[in-house]
Write a protein that binds this DNA or RNA. Structure first.
Length: 831
RNA sequence: GCCGGUGUGGCGGAAUUGGCAGACGCAAGGGACUUAAAAUCCCUCGGUGGAAACAUCGUACGGGUUCGACCCCCGUCACCGGCACCA
């Protein structure tokens, strides 16, 4: 019979709403467990089927933890500031706060419909003044300690959003959100000095339980390299400083390259004989976007600076200087020493401009290619470094340079400071004012929150001013320092601000005197397990680690790191309607390839409206119920890998729940012990499901539950057998389980019951079937009592008819016995 | 180019980490029940040969180590993700 999921799910959701069984207690004696998921951006489209994957996973984990006796914090909230809402508001002339409110209401309904065990009393909303008061407060603390500073610099500018972007928000030269072209623009911006934390952000990864690909990506993004800065002399008599990781190759420098933006060029202007040519190259480089400059990296361009030459500090040789846009102004010193023999880019440039190539590290052929191996190379043609391996030569030359005052050891990072202002309306106002006399000043903390004023129009201006700039009443204020006239900052914070500390607010969400109380933070922190998307690795995850480290430094939090453990889920893809595998005839296939190109070759693709392959969770719940959706999304495949939604495969999970219903809908009499026939598999399943949940192997946990139910179909389950099944199923399918739990007459919530225990001894069957191999090939199986000793096993094997036939006339030269598993007989023909 | 990952039936995926490859599920085929369909239940389901017993091949490809390899080592190919002139 098919169970009435619609009635049952509604019934239990109402009960949970009323009785709040998932509430976390702030003053509990129990051990705590804080499980976190990335809170959603409340978009107008509502929840899509990608959301339930990480949510259900952490719901299952936290439900299991509750059954293990933990005081669990599993919160939810909304990352509510952001551009899509603002753009929608502009288009439809509705206040973004109203749009946000409606979207949140919709999300809340959808999340409740899926039966998640969130603590609904702790919901946070980043656009709520009671929340962003503390976002502003944290920013002010950074400002007061010099970590927030204003700088005029070349920034990424999205031509469509009309807003600056952080480096992390530019993907392949286009805007991460809207996909429009990103150009460079000179603007005065608030910056956060994340680079001051670069070392700690790398080093502290070592002690964290993050999956490796997250650690690796963060390390690569921060991009620490150890090297040296070296001063080269010039014929102008000044110095040109470079950064290099290969100071050992100093004797091999045959020319230098500086970036087109390098400031030293201006001071050389009167000495440069080909100044027009140089200026022309600079102008051409300035016009290109970063993307264009890196896109054409196959063909290097450059201009020699005639009239000024550099002097190699170790050889005293005069060498030419070039400008080229392959040298970045923003990394190192904006100038490099070129060692074409041992650097691929320099080699390429030297070949093109016919510059000399000197071998200073033996081991390759520098006429054919740059030799860059640091592990095997030995220094040659390098004076006092000759004969040394690369690493030793590096140390020796850096010491030499330091002693002579020509250079020093230096660490460089790819990571840039975080561009923190946005020229948009729907974000946290930056709580600073500018006074002509006193400069930038923080507003008094008593004036927080600095609320967003209502504006007539949210349209950003083409010249890159925030819509707030038009609100002169709001902008004009008095200086908190001298009392004179001052103007408010009109840029707002990026949407990454509110999410950089939200996990702390969940610990103490209603506190109006502190961001989070000391006692709440000391009890709940750090987050024990944080699951989220890989796309946030170098954005939210890095930013929030930075903020947390700052809060640690000023004594707000007691741990160096916000998250003890980080895991990540794979995306849910949709079926590709244009996939060539869906059609039979060759002509149709070719037509699809002609029409859609590479797209036609993929069986599954990202869900999108234009492809019409979007799966709406509401529809799935309506047809199969929330429990089936939850179960299927966990069963769909390896949690870490991308998976493709299959509307037919969902049915299998519904059938499984129907089977469970049919087994348990009638009250089973008796005590709560396991039946003799099922005892072993029940114990095994308890072990398997428990361990699999801990390791996020949800698909095999569910497979084990299905196998258990199949066993119950063969051997009628006892009351105890059913109880164990319901308890193990409870984290995955809480509605049907509570209904059956109640019908069986068990007390309280199944979700509040204690996770069943297993006994290793009870797990093994009394008899074991062993594989019998002859010369490594499977030939038979024998059944022996469990844990039989080798002699018993061998005797049983030799007694087996099939084995007898196989070893007829053979001599057994070796016997391998693997306890409770297999026997391998190595035989050869008897002489 | 560099870093990380993946490759197993028609499909999603298992395999106690070196010990019976294909658990569990989907799809498919056959049967039962039904006036019929749905639902449900039973059987089959990697390839080849064979009524069958059984034999033989089989975890991207080529080699190696081992009594034994999806798993370890060497090489090759393909795909996915991240970074990408970072000196």
């Amino acid at each position: 019979m098919n169970y009435d999921f619609a009635r049952i799910e509604k019934k239990w959701q109402e009960i949970w709403e009323r009785e709040k069984p998932y509430r976390a207690e702030n003053d509990s004696k129990k051990p705590k467990f804080y499980g976190l998921i990335e809170f959603p951006y409340p978009s107008g489209q509502g929840l899509h089927v990608g959301h339930p994957r990480p949510y259900t996973a952490m719901d299952v984990i936290t439900r299991k933890k509750r059954m293990d006796g933990y005081n669990v914090l599993f919160p939810i909230g909304y990352d509510a500031f952001g551009l899509p809402t603002e753009n929608y508001a502009i288009k439809n002339h509705i206040h973004p706060a109203v749009v946000t409110h409606d979207n949140i209401a919709n999300f809340t309904n959808q999340l409740k419909m899926l039966g998640y065990g969130f603590d609904w009393d702790r919901v946070v909303n980043t656009s709520d003044p009671d929340y962003y008061k503390w976002t502003q407060w944290i920013f002010l603390q950074m400002f007061k300690r010099g970590l927030a500073y204003k700088a005029t610099m070349s920034v990424n500018w999205c031509t469509s959003c009309k807003v600056v972007l952080a480096n992390e928000e530019v993907v392949e030269g286009v805007c991460e959100r809207c996909g429009s072209e990103v150009v460079r623009k000179e603007k005065s911006q608030w910056m956060l000095a994340i680079t001051k934390y670069a070392d700690r952000l790398i080093d502290d990864l070592d002690d964290l339980d993050f999956i490796d690909r997250v650690k690796t990506q963060q390390r690569n993004w921060i991009g620490r390299s150890y090297g040296a800065e070296v001063d080269f002399g010039t014929t102008k008599g000044d110095k040109l400083r470079v950064f290099t990781t290969r100071a050992d190759t100093l004797f091999g420098v045959t020319y230098m390259v500086i970036s087109p933006e390098h400031p030293i060029l201006d001071s050389w202007a009167d000495a440069i004989s080909n100044l027009d040519e140089v200026r022309e190259y600079q102008a051409a480089a300035a016009k290109k976007s970063d993307f264009e400059r890196t896109e054409i990296n196959k063909d290097k361009t450059g201009v020699e600076i005639k009239g000024v030459r550099a002097i190699n500090p170790v050889t005293g040789d005069e060498i030419p200087i070039f400008i080229s846009d392959y040298v970045l102004a923003t990394y190192g010193t904006g100038a490099i020493m070129a060692v074409p023999g041992h650097d691929e880019r320099d080699w390429e440039f030297a070949k093109k401009f016919n510059l000399p190539i000197i071998e200073v590290v033996a081991g390759g052929n520098v006429e054919e290619a740059a030799f860059t191996d640091c592990d095997t190379g030995i220094l040659v043609n390098s004076g006092f470094l000759n004969g040394l391996p690369v690493e030793e030569a590096k140390k020796k030359i850096i010491q030499w340079l330091t002693d002579k005052g020509l250079g020093e050891q230096k660490v460089n990072f790819k990571l840039r400071d975080w561009v923190f202002s946005r020229q948009r309306y729907w974000g946290e106002p930056i709580p600073l004012v500018y006074c002509d006399k006193c400069g930038w000043q923080a507003i008094p903390e008593s004036e927080l929150p600095l609320k967003l004023p209502n504006v007539e129009s949210y349209e950003p201006t083409d010249d890159g001013e925030s819509p707030l700039a038009k609100m002169t009443d709001w902008v004009n204020t008095t200086c908190p320092c001298c009392g004179g006239p001052a103007r408010r900052e009109t840029d707002t914070m990026p949407n990454w601000a509110g999410s950089s500390w939200y996990f702390l607010r969940y610990m103490d969400p209603h506190n109006d005197s502190e961001a989070v109380s000391k006692s709440a933070e000391e009890y709940w922190g750090p987050v024990d397990w944080y699951n989220g998307g890989m796309e946030h690795t170098t954005l939210h995850l890095l930013y929030s680690r930075f903020w947390h480290k700052f809060l640690y430094d000023i004594g707000v939090v007691h741990t160096k790191e916000p998250y003890a453990k980080r895991t990540s889920h794979g995306m849910i893809l949709g079926q590709n309607p244009h996939y060539v595998g869906n059609v039979e005839s060759e002509a149709e296939k070719q037509a699809l390839i002609d029409k859609y190109g590479n797209l036609a070759l993929r069986p599954s693709v990202k869900m999108s409206k234009s492809l019409g392959n979007v799966v709406n969770p509401d529809d799935v719940v309506k047809e199969f119920g929330a429990d089936t959706l939850r179960l299927y999304i966990m069963f769909i495949g390896d949690f870490e890998k991308t998976a493709t939604w299959s509307s037919t495969a969902v049915k299998g999970c519904k059938r499984f729940l129907d089977k469970v219903w049919n087994l348990a809908e009638k009250q089973i009499p008796g005590d709560e012990s396991y039946s003799a026939a099922n005892s072993a598999i029940v114990h095994r399943t308890i072990k398997k499901v428990g361990e699999d949940i801990e390791q996020m192997k949800f698909n095999t946990a569910i497979a084990a539950l299905m196998a258990l139910v199949n066993a119950y179909s063969d051997n009628k389950p006892s009351r105890g057998d059913i109880k164990a099944l319901l308890q193990m199923l409870s984290p995955f399918a809480p509605h049907i389980v509570e209904e059956l739990w109640q019908m069986q007459g068990f007390k309280g919530y199944a979700a509040a019951s204690k996770w069943p225990e297993f006994d290793e001894k009870a797990m093994v069957e009394s008899e074991r079937e062993l594989a019998v191999q002859i010369n490594g090939k499977l030939r038979a199986t024998v059944t022996v009592p469990a844990d039989s000793d080798d002699d018993t096993v061998i005797a049983a094997v030799k007694d087996n008819e099939k084995v007898k036939r196989q070893i007829e006339g053979m001599e057994i030269v070796k016997t391998i016995v693997v306890k409770n598993r297999l026997v391998n007989l190595i035989v050869k023909p008897a002489r």
